[in-house]
Design a protein around this nucleic acid. Structure first.
Lengths: 233, 233
DNA sequence: TGTGACGTATAAGTCTGACTTTTTATCCCT
DNA sequence: AGGGATAAAAAGTCAGACTTATACGTCACA
């Protein structure tokens, strides 16, 4: 998924991107296009295209007579899904996971409130379906199946909010949730309280109760934050 | 600011990017690199670099034997500052402004709460300074000066939250605020209630009162949303 | 000794043309 | 009509030559 071989420049990015975001090339480092091209055994044209992409993500800055300079972390386009994926795969994964979870705790409650106002009948149906799927897979170590429905649930909420900025966070939430299941210690079944909250949230949206939907989502994201505190001190 | 002449490919992007985000090339449209290169009177290499950047923003998809296809709006990286700027300059500016303001109403209250917990003494000082600047310029049609302090105020809050995802929304908030002053009808002095709220928010952060900071920011963003409702029906 | 003008080396930027690869559409044969 | 060979089209890749901006060192002059 992350590595779709869409050409040589894609392969270069898949190596160089993580190298930069992981700090292998610290901010201020100067790279030279020619050297990189040799190192990756690609032509300068391909290398230049890769550098342009990194530049558009504000990871690097290219200046004449100087080279390609790695920018300060504070300048990176941290909302770029590609950058998020690179960072989640790298060393500061825990830190990144926390940042994103805090973002979730801000955005999702408001999104849920809007979803309660704007969700179509179809979206309400999807929501209850996902919630039921979560319940059905909440026991017996069916983590993959549970995750699938959990991700789908939050995606529907974000989409149903009717706000495109919220909707585009679906991928981010998916990464956070799946990352939690994949990498962190999560051998046990999911918290029953969380499952119940999702079921009640689906009901609240169906009932057009925006305030309740918002409050329930606050509890869900608060739980996610708390869980993170337990796992990563 | 937006058009920094960082080369020919930058100039191409400044034309082609807005053309795509404004719907001049609707989703599904197929462009050909060679034709575009001729049209912009640049070499294919330059054109290819521009296309790569657009591709990294998920605005287009490049496929062999087909061409460069404009992607559906739902796939765009709408958090990319460049994309945001292009869209704010285009036709669906009102829609975009609303989306971003809703995002603000979700993020800023939580950010303010965190800021109250983590702000340094220096940041607290900056905050009160900005608030005073707003007060000083809240009368007498000093809109530019008021805007300057308003933007700085919200930037400090987002930075002080200690969350990098929030911090990177500083530019977005700046665009929204300055856009409001620049394009919309805002000949009158700013709402005195809003000014007061900012002053009180600075106090709340200084007093480490997270709950109050969050609530005050909710009122501020609610006001911004309401203002938008009045101006754009 | 400090300072400013000047020249030079360097690395990115640009262009061109030839070649390769992938994918799609067409055509032909069964 | 269906399926497989074939051709065409567009992106992808590469190599090499040239251009341009600019950091840095040098040297003359104050």
């Amino acid at each position: 998924m992350s590595t779709r071989g869409r050409g040589l420049h894609g392969h270069v990015l898949d190596t160089l991107g993580p190298a930069i975001t992981s700090g292998e090339y610290p901010p201020g480092s100067v790279l030279r296009t020619d050297e990189l091209a040799q190192h990756f055994e690609v032509s300068r044209s391909v290398m230049r295209e890769a550098v342009r992409v990194l530049e558009s993500m504000h990871l690097v800055e290219s200046r004449r007579r100087v080279g390609v300079t790695v920018r300060a972390k504070a300048e990176w386009n941290v909302y770029d899904p590609q950058v998020i994926r690179w960072r989640l795969a790298g060393a500061d994964r825990p830190h990144q996971l926390r940042s994103l979870t805090v973002l979730r705790s801000a955005v999702e409650p408001v999104a849920a409130g809007l979803a309660a106002q704007h969700a179509t009948a179809e979206q309400c149906a999807e929501l209850t379906e996902c919630a039921l799927g979560m319940v059905a897979n909440s026991r017996g170590h069916r983590l993959q199946e549970y995750l699938f429905h959990d991700v789908a649930f939050h995606r529907v909420i974000l989409n149903a909010s009717g706000n495109e900025m919220f909707a585009r966070l679906g991928d981010v939430v998916a990464e956070v949730l799946s990352g939690r299941t994949r990498h962190e210690v999560m051998f046990e079944d999911p918290d029953p309280a969380a499952v119940t909250l999702h079921v009640r949230l689906a009901e609240a949206v169906r009932a057009r109760d925006a305030a309740r939907a918002e409050e329930l989502t606050r509890e869900i994201t608060a739980g996610a934050l708390q869980e993170l505190d337990v796992l990563a001190p």
